[in-house]
Design a protein around this nucleic acid. Structure first.
Lengths: 148, 148
DNA sequence: CGAAGTTTTTAGATTATATCTAATATGACA
DNA sequence: TGTCATATTAGATATAATCTAAAAACTTCG
C-alpha cells in the first residue's frame, strides 16, 4: 500500500497524518482481517513509532468519525475494525467471533412508511453462522441448523 | 401477555420456568423497546421476585441460546435484547443508541460462491441513522447526510 | 416420602473492554 | 519565534459482562 495514498486519505478527511494515526490506518488497509483494538494496538507497537492504548482508541474513533473505518460490534466480544475499501457485507462466526467479508450486492431499502421520520444513513447486512475454520468441528453437532 | 403462553414458550425450549427466568422473558415480551441487561435487571427487581445480576445475565444467555431472544450488539454501548416475535429488521440510532424495529421484508441470500464452506444460520439487516427523537436536533448539522 | 443428583440462584470478586485525566509534546502558521 | 490548536501519553477510572463457590430449589427414583 502506497504511503502517499494513506496520507492523502487522512488529510482529505481533515485528519492530520501523525505517525501513530498513519500506523493504525496503514495496518487496517494492509490487513482485511477485521482486528480488534487490542490487536491493532499490539501490531502497531511491534514496530516504531510506538503508540499508547489511549491513542490507538482515539485514532480509531477519529477514523470511524471521518468515515474511513468501520466499527463492527460483535456480541460478547471486542469490537472489530475494518478499513472501508470496496463495499461488502459481513459474516460473523458464532463460534470464534471472527468477522469476514462477503461480496457486496444491493439490498432494497425499507418502505418509506416503515422508516417514518428517521434519517437513514446506511444499511448493513450481517450474516451469522460458522466460518470455514469452525464449520467442520460443529457441523454435525446438535443445535446448529442450516437455514435458508 | 398470557402467563401460560410464556411458561409453554420456556418449557417448549427445554428451559425450566423459574420465577427469575419467567420475569426476564415476560419483561421482554411485554416491552418491545430493546432494553439493555442493566435495564432488565432493574425492571425485574422493581417487583418480586428479586433476581441477582448474575442470574439476569445467565437467563439472558440461556434465552438467547434457546433462540427465544435476540441479542443486538451496539458499538460502544451495552448490548440490547429483544424477544423474537414477528420477524423484523433493526434500526440503530447513531446518536442515542436506541434500537427500533423495522417491518420485515425478505432479503436475498448471498451467492453460494461467496459463502464458500461457511454454514449460514441467519442474516440480519441493520439500518443506521437518526431516530425520530434525535433527527430534529441533528438534521441540519454538518456531518449528517441523507443517503439512498 | 426421602436420598441423591441436577439445575438455578446468589453476592461479591474478577475480568475484559473502553474511556478519561491532566500533563507533555508536536505541528501549524502568523 | 511565539501562540494556539491538536495529538500523545501513562495510568487511573468507568462500564459491561463473567466467574466463583456456596446455598437453595427442583427432579428423579428407590
Amino acid at each position: 500500500m502506497d504511503a502517499e495514498a494513506i496520507q492523502q486519505c487522512l488529510e482529505g478527511s481533515g485528519l492530520r497524518c501523525t505517525p501513530q494515526r498513519y500506523a493504525v490506518m496503514a495496518f487496517l488497509m494492509e490487513h482485511n482481517r477485521h482486528p480488534t483494538a487490542a490487536e491493532i494496538f499490539e501490531a502497531v507497537n511491534r514496530v516504531d513509532p510506538r503508540s499508547s492504548r489511549a491513542t490507538t482508541y482515539n485514532n480509531l474513533r477519529d477514523l470511524v468519525r471521518a468515515g474511513l473505518v468501520r466499527e463492527v460490534a460483535v456480541e460478547g466480544r471486542a469490537a472489530r475494525f475494518d478499513a472501508k475499501g470496496m463495499r461488502h457485507h459481513h459474516f460473523i462466526c458464532d463460534r470464534c467471533g471472527n468477522v469476514e467479508d462477503i461480496q457486496w450486492y444491493d439490498v432494497p431499502r425499507p418502505a418509506a412508511a416503515s422508516l417514518g421520520k428517521r434519517i437513514l444513513r446506511e444499511s448493513e447486512l450481517i450474516f451469522r453462522g460458522l466460518c470455514t475454520k469452525c464449520a467442520p468441528r460443529r457441523a454435525a453437532r446438535k443445535g446448529v441448523v442450516r437455514v435458508s
